[in-house]
């Protein structure tokens, strides 16, 4: 707690002069690194790094029974796990509200952009493909949402669809790449002492009073959003953040090859 206050003061002091501890501009990302296809047992995988934050995403397919209200569609689901090795405050146990929020925001971004056409996951009466994206938070140095968004989308771009024969999947044999309608990424902005910064590092997150995240997709559209934290945002801040999200989103999609 005391160390947190020290960091908070330091971050706020620098921001008074529009400066950040790592020398970045207020609306600039840390270096981003994307590695796809690291895990051949998974149908798709991607390790995304923004600065020191590392998130690994793995994609697995299963044959599932479609939901009753959508009998001709497959299932798509994102989960997140905060690994105890990623941060001193992460402990083993059931998912807490932070990991649930993270998974749901990433899920919403990809789902509402219709990246995966769930009708194309239908196999036959009572059978459809289920796509499960699992996000492993390996190192938490701030801005998990954007890193996880990149990992999830990167993994889907890397995904091959296993062959389906005689009502079962043949593991290790593929019918082709997963068809994606478009790609979506998330950009998160933190509000610190009235200033808006993109891609906060861990020190800045400690000092932050609130976050606004926008997912954007091809066609310069906003497809998901989440306001989190105790601070409020004005209309002007919303407008500026939407503009920056659309611009940075284009760059991020190019970076992951979407």
């Amino acid at each position: 707690m005391i160390m947190d206050e020290v960091k908070e003061e330091f971050v706020k002091e620098l921001l008074k002069n529009n400066k950040r501890s790592d020398g970045r501009g207020l609306l600039e990302y840390r270096p981003i690194k994307i590695e796809k296809g690291l895990l051949p047992n998974a149908e798709g995988s991607c390790l995304a790094q923004i600065g020191d934050t590392k998130v690994l995403a793995g994609v697995k397919f299963d044959v599932v029974e479609p939901y009753k209200d959508r009998p001709a569609e497959g299932v798509f689901q994102v989960n997140a796990e905060f690994l105890p090795l990623a941060h001193p405050e992460f402990f083993a146990g059931p998912p807490d509200e932070r990991s649930i929020e993270l998974a749901r925001v990433v899920d919403r971004g990809i789902r509402s952009a219709d990246c995966v056409d769930s009708k194309k996951l239908f196999l036959e009466e009572g059978k459809a493909l289920g796509i499960y994206v699992d996000l492993y938070i390996m190192d938490h140095s701030g801005n998990l949402i954007d890193t996880a968004g990149l990992a999830a989308m990167g993994a889907l771009l890397d995904t091959k669809v296993p062959k389906y024969e005689a009502k079962a999947l043949i593991r290790g044999e593929f019918s082709g790449k997963l068809h994606l309608e478009r790609s979506a990424v998330v950009c998160s902005f933190e509000k610190i002492d009235g200033k808006i910064v993109l891609d906060a590092n861990d020190e800045e997150e400690v000092a932050s009073e609130g976050r606004l995240s926008f997912a954007t997709c091809d066609g310069d559209l906003l497809c998901a959003a989440q306001k989190s934290g105790r601070s409020a945002f004005s209309r002007e801040e919303f407008s500026a953040i939407m503009d920056a999200s659309l611009e940075k989103g284009r760059e991020l999609r190019k970076l992951i090859g979407g």
């Binding site: 509402s112 997709c217 906003l222 998901a224 959003a225 989440q226 004005s234 939407m242």
Partner: peptide, 22 residues
Amino acid sequence: SNEILLFQLDGMLSKKEVETAL
């Protein structure tokens, strides 16, 4: 204060549509 305290969104919209929604 004319501020936004909760905001969530799903579904594809242009910036102009989000502004109108607000």
